[in-house]
Amino acid sequence: MAFRDSVGGRAFLANLWRENPVFRQVLGICSTLAVTNLLKNTLLMCAGLVFTTALSSVTVSALREHTPRQVRMMVQVLIIAAYVILVGIAMKAYFPEVHKVIGPYVGLIITNCIIMGRCEAFATKNSPWPSCLDGLGAGLGYSLILIVIAVVRETLGFGTLFGVPLPAADRWWHQWTIMVMPPGAFFMLALVAWFGNATVRSREGGKT
């Protein structure tokens, strides 16, 4: 069976673009806006989120036969929190200066609705391997949007990319300070959501 026809594969691909968690389902917006003014912070945040979505989906799915329905939310939150603690410890150990800036937002991965949403919508009904792919797809779909936003915000706002200045930036480049401040994040996300929605909708319109 081809990858794109299997249950997990289909979910993986759908989460990447057509059902993208950020602009199609409007989930997990908080961190999307908060960590995207420097590309390095963004990449670390994405890595943490992909790790957490994939593994918590697997765990929730593996335990789905043994979890009573009434307490499943609490169980999911605890599973997610356990993985987030791992991410937090790892980041503190290897990237202490990044942790200082985005530390609280790493903790907030727990309440990132993408993870909870994938656990609830997919992992409670499917076996571990497709759930892993589904979580991975959602995490990567989220990362894709974050990286796009971060590239634009960092180049326009600081005139750098990955902390490296653009060639001869000081001679011709004037920094748009607004892009690294909160309003810039709101405007960028609105533009990306507009673009994404327009493309997805026009493609769907073409099919039917």
Binding site: F23, V26, F187, A190, A193, W194
Partner: peptide, 9 residues
């Protein structure tokens, strides 16, 4: 495409 979440943002 801007309706809903987009315009709110």
């Amino acid at each position: 495409g801007l309706r809903g979440a987009g315009i709110t943002l």
